[in-house]
């Protein structure tokens, strides 16, 4: 069994009357890409800040690499890399100087540091921009620099706090590919985001947060199997009468049926061949059928079912 890298036990963080993190417990194992998913204000960043001892907390325990985490736990901190939500680099230093500076906070030996900085530059594809000041970089390049500064010292645990906010799709893919590559090289990753597609794409396991609490955790498949709706079938069909609708409602595994503006939507709790069975029912009634679609549950479905609200506003 893989070793536990991070263990958070009943963490509580309050800001006066507001409970930002409410008895949160998590366990993250070596080699995982662990996603922390939740809407804005759900407590993800507060949890990360507590994890890094940037914030004090009211209750609970945090262990990293099997040791208690504290502001002075420098032996733990040296193996952690952080990529903050906002780009945290010096505007007055060049790309190379920025990476060298942050790497220098961990690696004192000059030759070793030089090698680590060059590796980070190559990894993030910033070779052509080493002498550039950050203000001369595009948004995507800036994010890559932010990542390079966080990973140059080759940490065992890397925390990415919403690293793709306000990044174009091309750069976003590049960043996500980079994270997968870092994981392949042996780093354990904690990835916070409110973009469920990203989490689905790269995370091996995740926890869904809302109002400072973990409302579900497990692998993506585990979470999806836990939701009632396993499939949603939509059919364009005109003039459905009450009797046909009753027959559709009576289909095996169907638990919710709606018919509006010539669109029939049927939700299923499970089962196979749901589309075929629905289409056969309609054909037997000589009903003309238009477009047909079948959707598997997404993390948004999971979140919607768990909290009764969308994970994020539609963009």
């Amino acid at each position: 069994m893989a070793q536990t890298v991070v263990k958070i036990d009943k963490l509580v963080k309050r800001y006066k009357d507001l409970v930002a993190v409410d008895h949160l417990s998590l366990e993250i194992f070596e080699g995982e890409v662990f996603g922390l998913l939740g809407p804005n204000g759900s407590g993800k960043t507060t949890t990360i800040n507590c994890l890094l001892s940037l914030l004090s907390f009211d209750k609970g325990d945090i262990q990293i690499f099997g040791k208690n985490m504290s502001p002075t736990a420098y032996d733990i901190k040296k193996d952690i890399g952080v990529v903050m939500q906002n780009v945290a680099v010096f505007d007055q230093l060049t790309v190379y100087e920025n990476i060298d500076y942050f790497c220098g906070l961990y690696i004192k030996d000059k030759a070793q540091r030089k090698k680590a900085v060059e590796d980070a530059i190559a990894f993030t594809g910033l070779e052509d921009f080493v002498k550039f000041l950050p203000k001369k970089l595009s948004g995507g390049l800036l994010r890559r620099l932010n990542i390079a500064c966080g990973i140059a010292h080759k940490p065992k645990l890397i925390i990415f706090d919403e690293p793709t906010v306000a990044v174009d799709p091309q750069s976003r893919n590049k960043i996500l590919e980079g994270i997968i590559e870092l994981n392949k090289q042996g780093a354990t990753i904690i990835y916070t985001s409110h973009y469920m597609e990203e989490v689905e794409q790269i995370c091996t396991r995740l926890a869904v947060m809302d109002k400072g609490r973990v409302i579900a955790q497990g692998t993506i498949d585990e979470l999806k199997t836990n939701v009632k709706c396993s499939e949603t079938v939509t059919v364009e069909a005109r003039e459905l009468d009450e009797q046909t609708l009753s027959e559709v409602k009576a289909l095996e595994h169907a638990f919710e049926t709606s018919y509006e503006s010539g669109r029939l939507t049927v939700k299923y709790t499970g089962g196979k061949h749901n589309v075929v069975r629905l289409l056969n029912t309609l054909q037997n009634k000589n009903i003309h059928i238009g477009r047909v679609s079948s959707e598997q549950p997404t993390l948004n479905t999971v979140f919607l079912e768990l909290t009764g609200k969308e994970l994020r506003d539609k963009e």
Binding site: L54, K77, V82
Partner: peptide
């Protein structure tokens, strides 16, 4: 925050 997350 980045600096205080490091070993300094």
């Amino acid at each position: 925050n980045r600096i205080f997350s490091s070993s300094i």
